[in-house]
Amino acid sequence: MQTFIDAYSWVNIAFLLKGLWLTIEVSVASIILSYIIGAILGLVRYIEVKYLSAIVGFIIDLIRNLPLLLIFFFTYFGLPNMGVRLSIPASAILALTIFESAMLAEIIRAGIVSVDKGQMEGARANGMTYWQTLRYIILPQAQVKMIPALVSQFISLIKDTSLATIIMLPELMYHAQIIYGQNSNYIIPMFLALAAMYFVVCYALSLLSRYIEKRVN
């Protein structure tokens, strides 16, 4: 019991929270960026621009089929090699953005496809242009349909930030490792804290998604 009291001293908790804060910062930045890029890529795939869509599709498939760890290595070691130099958090955000926008592009494309084809034809018949239909009829409906898939991808992203310990990003997992690396009595308390913190953040997000889903429907 004493170990638990010692392990959860204010200093350690503050250190963990500092890690958690960076986890959240990196996640939010990556979520925003990858949502924008993913939406563009998803649209490009959907509207089938000649060649462009095929190339984009191929790149998306490549990225989706690689382990995220490898993408961390490429952004942290590979890009500077080509002249782009990034700090640890920046390359973590970049890696997550690259990986997650490929995942999101696929979700968004599938979401748009799932909206009935007849709607496009109907709206066009009523005199709307292709873009107007897409903008006012198809996308709003697709967006609602996508919410669960999108949010579960965002949750994956938050969990995946833990892999950035491999490039020494001082986020939650890394900070916990620093603490239990110095005193192994703290291993169990730290794992409990880790699990609890990640769970609270991710579960809150999934509750939020369910709430939004209910309201929209």
């Binding site: 942290y76 070691f77 500077p80 090699n81 130099r85 990034l86 700090s87 640890i88 490039i167 020494m168 001082p170």
Partner: peptide, 17 residues
């Protein structure tokens, strides 16, 4: 200071980070 591990230090130096 940039924190490195035994694995990351040489690539970071070569890359100029």
């Amino acid at each position: 200071f940039v924190q490195v591990s035994s694995q990351t230090r040489i690539p970071l130096l070569k890359n100029g980070n």
